[in-house]
Design a binder for these strands. Structure first.
Lengths: 216, 216
DNA sequence: CGTGGTTACGTAACATTGTTACTCCATCGA
DNA sequence: TCGATGGAGTAACAATGTTACGTAACCACG
């Protein structure tokens, strides 16, 4: 169109259009030309604002981690720390299911048109994990979990959660045990593995269920 | 070269070259032209033998599942079924680390040049899981695990294992708790979550460790 | 008000990708 | 020996990320 229409919000417009393209058409639909067409500009805008498709995806990943952290932070601490841990699990999975394509890019790692995350990009997980670490520490203080480093315990829970979400999004969890069944069974199993009594996990699970946020 | 050199093993040669390309250069290095150059043929060979790059990757995934199943089948049943379960975990992780790129394609799912697995391709996991299901059932018979459907318990273990391997291959597990530490902590946690006593898992873990195969 | 510098953007091209139409010719059966 | 089959090479097509180049608008001066 008319040249030199300086738009300071073009970078954010590109990001929003990229997020929409990724969500609606998947990783294959996220191309420079379609992105440029979506915001009514040219492909070079991607390079002036981000220096390439890699950095644009990187920015989306950063935003994805920030949103995940925001969602995890909405889980309040209660007198039942195990229920808090489970509520964090629900929040994690709900956020992933709300943005499945983004989640796959965030953790799919290797392949998005040969795109690869940099070393620092992956350490966002550590920062995002903090609410879970706190809840695990409180569960140990309340005598529900075995004594041990909360960071290691929380990391193990995150690993298992990621495994579930990853396989769910990939469509690998099939009948008779679909993702919902596996998820709640895994939550109880994780709590028991951390030291809680099997029977106690039932009431905490019921509490966590009631705290699910409808959408986020 | 000289035309019409009919080579009935060309399909397998393509598969082998594709596996080598994938292993050595990653998903980005696996292109039709490089593949054709590697076996000294033309790009059309991929289409006459596989009907496209998708089906060739599909064939590689099938081979990957078969190899995983073969490796899991080498774990023999002993009088310590919990150690058997852990040994299966070691085998699963070892196979994944031996073929990291293939593993990412098998479970990365969405993105390999817009390639997506078909519905039936993912159900290979169910077949591959059988040795683990058997070991879990025997652990329950021995009174080490809680009563429950072994398929559900095994699936949960597989989910957690996949989470660990997936994050390890992606480089998300960082200091101070690297993948080795997380893996063994997770093994014990899984056994306790399934019903075993925490102290008993230590000796079973030691037994499983001794049974690690050097290379596969 | 005018002028130069900076910078954002569009145009067009390049290399590379998966894919396919067309052709050729070696092999197999009669 | 001759025709049919079908596997493979050549070359093209559309689409991808990326970049060189030109242009024009803004901003800071005088």
């Amino acid at each position: 169109m008319s040249p030199r229409r300086i738009d300071p919000t073009l970078a954010t417009a590109l990001l929003e259009a990229a997020a929409r393209l990724l969500a609606e058409e998947g990783a294959a639909g996220l191309t420079t030309r379609r992105l440029a067409a979506a915001v009514g500009t040219s492909t070079t805008a991607v390079y002036t604002h981000f220096g390439g498709m890699d950095n644009l995806v990187r920015a989306m990943v950063h935003e994805g981690f920030a949103r995940l952290h925001r969602r995890m932070s909405t889980v309040r601490a209660t007198s039942d720390a195990v229920a808090d841990v489970m509520a964090l699990g629900y929040a994690y999975r709900a956020n992933s299911l709300d943005h499945p394509q983004l989640y796959q890019v965030m953790f799919g790692g290797a392949a998005l048109g040969g795109f690869a995350l940099a070393e620092g990009d992956r350490q966002h997980g550590k920062y995002t994990l903090q609410p879970l670490v706190d809840a695990v520490a409180r569960a140990a203080e309340q005598g529900r979990f075995r004594a041990g480093d909360p960071l290691l315990v929380a990391q193990n829970m995150w690993i298992a959660l990621h495994g579930l979400v990853s396989l769910e999004l990939g469509g690998y969890l099939i009948d008779p045990y679909d993702a919902d069944v596996c998820f709640e069974a895994q939550l109880r199993s994780l709590m028991v593995g951390a030291g809680d009594e099997y029977e106690a996990t039932a009431t905490s699970l019921a509490r966590a269920r009631r705290r699910r946020s409808p959408r986020g």
